[in-house]
Design a binder for these strands. Structure first.
Length: 374
RNA sequence: GUGGCUGUGGCGAAGUGGUUAACGCAGCGGAUUGUGAUUCCGCCAUCCGUGGGUUCAAGUCCCAUCAGCCACC
């Protein structure tokens, strides 16, 4: 392993373990993050429908932004003018940005990959541009995210061994280029493990990343259509070899159960659009399981969405009213539901940390396995 | 009372002789995993005001009847 730079020390402190589950603290430029943690997604500089004040009320510690989207709009000039994303959106806690790697996957029809980088046609106006690993790092340093991700290729599923290998190998060459392009020692950079559903490729990818050396490591390319068993298996393969003293981030995952399962295998960080997107589409996560607020059964329901939740939505409104707002297409409905779902996910992370601290994580896991599979 | 127009699912509305009666809204159910998401996918008229008739075949043509609307007495 290469020598660590000074900035790599003491970023992450592992406080305690309970089984494979880890309780830690991650110290970043804009603050401290208690792990395990869930990071709400704010792709274009806003966690949809919520303000920074809302997020602080919910005790959000770190949120996500996306390089691809922010590069297209508002663009580098605006982000530079406002001296970075924190100041622009008035969020003074940590931010993590994704590199645009996922958009290579999700906007597959609009791009072409070469060794140089990803050639995109903007989904907004068709403008063509090339996102190279160096540009991805450059943009993210202008954004000023506390943690930025290397540019990678998120391989689709299923993916045969040869394709997964060449894709992974290119992602590793890009990871090295990203590391070389990094200039700001105050900002963390995470490498991303790829290799599809092939354990040997995952191990190889991981060895190469650790050789390069990053402030943290992410597992990419999961939750792309594979079975839960596959996802868990690959997570375990990666966690087996990831440095114990550095943070581990499972990208894009997932459902509440996915998160608890991930923690049980040694993951520290998660992000997912699920609470916000599903909130806007009427599916809520509660301590009693999923609730589809559109359902007729809630029409005359006097109860709060989740009696065990202390968020503003649950403290104040009935299911009947929330259903009405949703069906009426009221903006306030989308907001109240998003607010609750984020509250649920953040409380879940808090409960996970507590369970680890109290050495009862196995029971906690069992409870959630029953809750979400009933 | 006379003349005209209209009668298709909760609503709006295609269809003017020939497959299982478009479509939109509303309703109901499901999906959603590094956000191209006020998105996506299902289901929802044994039946075309009613009764007869013509025809191999009628929501579509004919007759009668009922209802609504408009105009005129």
């Amino acid at each position: 392993m290469s020598l660590m730079t000074a900035s790599q020390f003491n970023r992450f402190k592992l406080l305690k373990t309970n089984g494979q589950a880890r309780r830690g603290v991650l110290t970043l430029k804009h603050g401290v993050v208690q792990t395990p943690i869930f990071m709400p997604v704010g792709t274009v500089g806003s966690v949809k429908t919520l303000t920074p004040a809302d997020l602080k009320d919910l005790d959000a510690q770190i949120i996500l932004g996306n390089t691809y989207h922010l590069f297209l709009r508002p663009g580098i000039e605006v982000l530079s003018h406002f001296k970075g994303l924190h100041n622009f959106i008035k969020w003074d806690r940590p931010i993590l940005t994704d590199s645009g790697g996922f958009q290579i996957f999700s906007l597959g029809k609009l791009n072409k990959l070469t060794e140089d980088g990803a050639h995109f046609a903007s989904h907004l106006d068709g403008t063509k541009f090339v996102l190279t690993p160096e540009l991805a790092v450059n943009i993210q340093e202008i954004i000023g995210s506390d943690i930025h991700m290397v540019l990678d290729e998120c391989t689709s599923y299923p993916c045969d061994l040869a394709t997964a290998r060449s894709s992974m190998e290119r992602s590793m060459r890009w990871a090295k280029r990203c590391r070389d392009a990094k200039t700001n020692p105050d900002l963390c950079q995470f490498g991303i493990v790829q290799g599809g559903m092939h354990p040997e490729l995952r191990r190889e990818s991981l060895r190469q990343l650790v050789e390069i050396g990053f402030e943290g490591y992410a597992i990419g390319g999961l939750s792309v259509g594979e079975s839960k068993e596959h996802m868990h298996e690959i997570t375990e393969v990666c966690c087996d070899l990831l440095p114990v003293d550095q943070p581990r981030y499972l990208m894009g995952v997932g459902t509440p159960l996915d998160i608890v399962e991930g923690v049980s295998r040694g993951i520290d960080m998660f992000d997912c659009v699920m609470p916000t997107r599903n909130g806007r589409n009427g599916t809520l996560f509660t301590s009693a399981g999923r609730v589809n607020i559109k359902n007729l059964q809630y029409r005359l329901d006097d109860a709060p969405l989740d009696a065990a939740c202390s968020c503003y939505t649950c403290r104040t409104f009935t299911r009947g009213y929330l259903r009405h707002l949703f069906l009426a297409g009221e903006i306030t409905g989308l907001r109240l539901l998003s607010l609750h779902n984020i509250a649920y996910y953040l409380q879940l992370a808090k409960d996970i940390r507590l369970a680890i601290e109290n050495d009862v994580f196995a029971d906690f896991l069992r409870h959630h396995q029953q809750l979400w599979t009933k």
